[in-house]
Write a protein that binds this DNA or RNA. Structure first.
Lengths: 208, 208
DNA sequence: CACAAAATTAAACAACTGTTTAATTTAAAC
DNA sequence: GTTTAAATTAAACAGTTGTTTAATTTTGTG
């Protein structure tokens, strides 16, 4: 599997990303991609081999991006609560900046048996989890966080809440009186981000 | 738009629901549906008019189900915290029992401009929100819950967390050492449900 | 049974799908 | 400028798509 792409290939990948995210993989034809990218239909097969391999290439291209974006919080000089805040900020920004590919991964790989192609994503997930684990353990040792937290359920709480909100954009725009897309984006980066942070912190600290 | 269906139609709808949930709307052909339902291809057009209208009918059929399933918690003689617990249990069970249609709604209607067909779903959402609002206001008046809660963000927190978990079944099965589908289902109804309940309760009660 | 409506069928329709071909153009190397 | 490889093209391929047709069977009603 190739991991480096030339300009033309990247151009195709980016168009494909947009269309796959909008219409789904099955709902997007190679001809549509070609028209949108202003190239000949045959070029997709020529460069990538097949439509399926185009998707694979897109995932390779994007997830290597994700890998690079990973940062290590656990060494920074912050208290556990600040680290949680920052971690969630990273989560939110990462998904925000990679909406397309996240949508595709979510759409095309939760159903069917494409799961084997998710190795790279699973690596990212595992690394995220390790990162969270370190922070929470530190908070527990310092007596700030509860001891009975099921750590693997933290990421789906963060990610799931965020996804559901941004995937139902139209509904929440209306509900929250956000008239423009910019207002919606802005809401995510401010109040919504804060909401997730509060939720997770509350969960970690709260004693029933 | 028809709202009552005969046995044959319901048989087709149920098969379609399964397939749409598995392979997506675009990824499922009428011929596959026909073969699976053991009927002639023409019967789908004959009964529903078109593939798109079949999807619409499915949504009508299922969301009228959802409407009926709605229950009114706010009158029951429970304290606000117990009501939250019960509400989340209702949420979890509802989605669990209607996995197929929820998946379809999630897949096919978050992208594209199919949004106009979501009226019925939005009604259900609004009613849920009203229900939550009542409970939270009661808890606030009794001084149990925080005053600065953004109530519209509670449902996406519950739903999103649940969706993300169950849509990434394979990953979480491995992560949590759940070897069978039954073990996974069981985990949802016990520990995972409790996790969501704790999360929401913590958010409502916790003072930073 | 006779008749009409409904249900079911196989076949055909045109449009679209992903992919391949073979010819042509462009670019690079010598 | 010639040669060789890479890039690009239009056309064709075979298979699938959703949908319609017209003929046939089944069902219900008098």
């Amino acid at each position: 599997m190739k991991t480096d792409f030339n300009e033309k290939q990247i151009q195709i990948l980016l168009i494909a990303e947009t269309l796959f995210a909008e219409k789904g993989f099955e709902g997007t034809s190679i001809r549509t991609i070609a028209k949108e990218a202003d190239i000949n239909v045959a070029m997709v097969s020529y460069y990538f081999g097949s439509k399926e391999k185009l998707l694979e290439s897109l995932i390779v291209y994007r997830t290597s991006d994700l890998k690079i974006q990973m940062e290590n919080l656990s060494v920074e000089d912050l208290d556990p609560i600040e680290k949680i805040d920052k971690l969630i900020e990273l989560y939110v920004n990462r998904i925000r900046c990679n909406k397309g590919i996240y949508r595709i991964l979510h759409f095309e790989f939760t159903t069917e048996q494409r799961e084997d192609k998710l190795k790279v994503l699973n690596e990212v997930r595992d690394r995220n989890l390790k990162s969270i684990e370190t922070i929470i353990h530190e908070g527990q040792q310092k007596g700030i966080f509860r001891k009975d937290i099921i750590i693997p359920l933290i990421p789906p709480t963060i990610m799931g809440t965020f996804f559901h909100f941004s995937m139902n954009k139209a509904y929440f725009k209306k509900l929250l009186n956000l008239e423009t897309d910019e207002a919606f984006e802005n809401y995510i980066q401010t109040k919504f981000k804060t909401h997730i942070q509060q939720t997770i912190k509350a969960l970690l600290i709260y004693e029933s």
